[in-house]
């Protein structure tokens, strides 16, 4: 059997629509996730148990359960309860896109929070001591020194998280969304050509991954240059 290009060519609009859905899911989920991850990360390095424990529990539960399980719980699980179906949030929760973004954002916020916490803990003592010697308050210390430097040093790890999230968005096809994988499943089932359909999806993910890697490389070159190995 030979590779059937025609089917892929005819369905290209479906795939391109899928790319847009994938990017929309990814970008919104990442933005929300990061916004949640910063306070969570700060809580995770706090000495106060009152702050630390809830954040620890959150990241432990989210990182300890598969993404697919979380998505099923949010999409199919919540809909089971009449109180939810008649609640104020139902117009949102009945929407597959909203459910997928919510699940992805919760998931990435837990991982990003741990990345940020690790990066905060690894802040060189000298930087903190210098800030204290300058008479900075705690809030100023966090705002001017700890967070900017931790966020920078978290970049390489965070780029991994972003790429993992890109691949995780393929789960959206399970809750009826036509993302790249959803497009591939549609093409595969309509033409019985799973190889062509999924290899095309794979190619799209490869291209997106490549773009993300390049973006993070240039971000690292801009913000992490002071940590790069010295050129001979």
């Amino acid at each position: 059997m030979i590779f059937d290009y025609n089917v892929i060519w005819e369905n290209l609009p479906l795939y391109l629509g899928g790319v847009l859905v994938t990017l929309k899911l990814l970008l919104i989920a990442l933005a929300l996730g990061l916004a949640m991850a910063i306070p969570l990360g700060l809580m995770r390095v706090s000495k106060s148990q009152l702050l630390n424990f809830p954040a620890w529990l959150y990241t432990y539960v989210i990182r300890g359960t598969p993404m697919l399980v979380q998505l099923f719980l949010i999409y199919y699980g919540l809909a089971q309860f009449e109180a939810v179906r008649e609640g104020l949030l139902w117009p949102y929760l009945s929407d597959a896109t909203f459910c997928a973004i919510l699940a992805f954002a919760i998931n990435t916020s837990a991982y990003s929070a741990e990345i940020l916490a690790g990066s905060l803990r690894a802040t060189p003592h000298g930087e903190i001591e210098a800030a204290k010697a300058m008479g900075m308050s705690r809030a100023k210390l966090y705002r001017r020194i700890l967070l900017p430097s931790a966020l920078r040093r978290a970049l390489p790890q965070y780029s991994n998280e972003v790429i993992m999230m890109l691949h995780t968005t393929s789960l959206a096809s399970i809750v009826t969304l036509i993302d790249i994988t959803g497009a591939a499943r549609t093409v595969s089932s309509q033409h019985y050509l799973p190889f062509e359909a999924f290899i095309t999806a794979g190619a799209f993910y490869l291209v997106l991954t490549f773009i993300l890697v390049r973006l993070f490389k240039s971000a690292e070159r801009r913000w992490l240059v002071y940590l790069a190995p010295r050129k001979a």
Partner: peptide, 18 residues
């Protein structure tokens, strides 16, 4: 037209009002 993997999931979403 919304496509699902199994008919059971469709019944769930029909009952849920999606």
């Amino acid at each position: 037209v919304v496509r699902y993997s199994s008919q059971n999931e469709i019944f769930l979403d029909l009952a849920a009002g999606r």
